[in-house]
């Protein structure tokens, strides 16, 4: 569109009618370069590496192997187990984090006594170092001297192998991660709740709706954009979960807590196989893409309805 405004406004566009053709791209160039260097280049490199084999000694490429690395990892039972565990982490994290964050956000939004303390505690956990948190929880889960087993012991209940039992280790890691990371979705929900006009609740109360009806018919629908954001964020967190697993179980017992992120690390740094590590990373990205696309599709469908 040709400018039709006063000369003063024209002057602010620096020079002539085609100035935006230069200025616009120049303004976004830094962001494009950063994205290309730090997002797309590593991604392309990972894809290319997944199609090559490498010397286990100096990591130099020894040639193209097509989909050989992919067939290698799919033949590896540990990879299949890691793939399954990755989905388990996502499901458990979503199932525990989103409802808990929502509940805490609703309670904090009511400004009950102790709200400030509770909010600081949750944000404090979020701000804590992941490695330090994992080490502290590692101690608390310890079978002979940990806090949780001491509580069980005091209640005359049997000692639990929180991190050493095949059926408990993954859940134990998820519980710790939920405790640490519930703050982010909570803040998202809290912002969403505070953006809901109070008049809607007041009108519903005047119509005789009870608290549950107000929550279900007004609060939840109004929170949908916040829920979508929180779902994506928790999904990404769950997919790339790494530090707590490495510190607390190293992927054991018997691979019960290994996910694709840890599997890729082990392939690359413990077993000197850059090719299969890259193939595993590409698979992890594919999992993330599939899950987030599925979430987008499901949530968009509900909006359309």
């Amino acid at each position: 569109m040709q400018p039709t405004t006063a000369p003063a406004r024209k002057k602010r566009q620096w020079t002539g009618p085609n100035s935006n053709m230069i200025l616009g791209p120049a303004m976004i160039l830094p962001a494009v370069v950063a994205l290309a260097l730090f997002q797309y280049l590593p991604l392309i490199t990972a894809v290319l590496n997944s199609l090559q084999s490498f010397s286990p000694f100096d990591q130099s490429s020894t040639g193209w192997v097509g989909l050989g690395n992919y067939s290698d990892i799919f033949a590896d039972p540990a990879f299949r187990y890691a793939l399954l565990n990755t989905f388990l982490y996502i499901v458990l994290m979503l199932a525990l984090t989103i409802p808990l964050a929502l509940l805490l956000a609703v309670l904090l939004d009511r400004r009950l006594p102790g709200t400030t303390w509770a909010r600081n505690a949750v944000i404090g956990a979020l701000a804590a170092s992941e490695a330090v948190t994992a080490l502290i929880w590692n101690q608390m889960y310890e079978p002979s001297s940990g806090l949780f087993n001491a509580i069980l012991h005091a209640a005359s209940l049997p000692t639990q192998p929180f991190l050493t039992g095949g059926s408990q280790a993954l859940v134990s890691i998820v519980v710790m991660t939920v405790w640490k990371d519930v703050g982010l979705p909570l803040l998202i929900f809290l912002a969403g709740l505070q953006a809901i006009p109070r008049e809607l609740h007041e009108a519903a109360q005047l119509d005789g709706a009870n608290d549950w009806q107000i929550f279900r018919k007004i609060t939840l629908p109004q929170l949908r954009p916040s829920i979508v954001v929180a779902l994506f964020m928790v999904t990404i967190t769950a997919t790339r979960m790494f530090t707590p697993i490495l510190i607390m179980t190293q992927g054991g017992p018997q691979g019960a807590t290994t996910n694709l992120a840890l599997y890729s690390y082990l392939q690359g740094f413990e077993f000197q196989s850059q090719g299969t590590a890259s193939a595993s990373v590409v698979c992890m990205l594919a999992v993330l893409a599939i899950v987030t696309l599925a979430q987008s599709y499901l949530l968009r469908g509900q909006q359309e309805k």
């Binding site: 286990p56 190293q250 054991g252 017992p253 082990l266 413990e270 000197q272």
Partner: peptide, 26 residues
């Protein structure tokens, strides 16, 4: 020449056995 891999695979296997996994399977 691949003892680094050998070592890194044996350590978790030993730990799994300590934690109760059957040596005849592990």
């Amino acid at each position: 020449p691949g003892y680094f891999d050998y070592f890194n695979a044996m350590n978790p296997a030993v730990k799994d056995i300590a934690l109760g996994a059957d040596p005849a399977k592990v």
